[in-house]
């Protein structure tokens, strides 16, 4: 089966986020009020072949931890959806 994976990566609390800070600082200048806690992260999307959703989740989690993120400074959430059922299912 094929699954789509969305990896939502954000900086851990306390980690310097110049992009988020800069966006937040300019908001009042543009007339936007009451907006706080702006953070800028990144998303990575890919598809993965796996026997079932559980296997897809495990493989994507391993990839995320070992390569896509640096656990010292980043956290990530995974969203996994079925793209196509495998043959015979």
């Amino acid at each position: 089966m094929q699954f789509s994976v969305l990896v939502d990566i954000r900086l851990r609390g306390g980690i310097s986020d110049p992009a988020g800070a800069t966006i937040e600082r300019v908001l009042p200048v543009l007339g936007y009020e009451g907006i706080a806690d702006v953070t800028v992260g990144k998303t990575i999307r890919f598809t993965i072949d796996a026997v079932d959703a559980e296997a897809a989740q495990a493989a994507a989690a391993e990839l995320t931890e070992s390569f896509l993120t640096n656990p010292v400074i980043e956290d990530a959430d995974l969203t996994i959806e079925t793209v196509s059922p495998g043959a015979g299912t």
Partner: peptide, 17 residues
């Protein structure tokens, strides 16, 4: 070297932006 695990910690963006 930090990414490779040969040294501890990580380098984040400069605090002064």
């Amino acid at each position: 070297l930090t990414e490779a695990g040969l040294l501890p910690g990580a380098l984040q963006k400069n605090s002064g932006l």
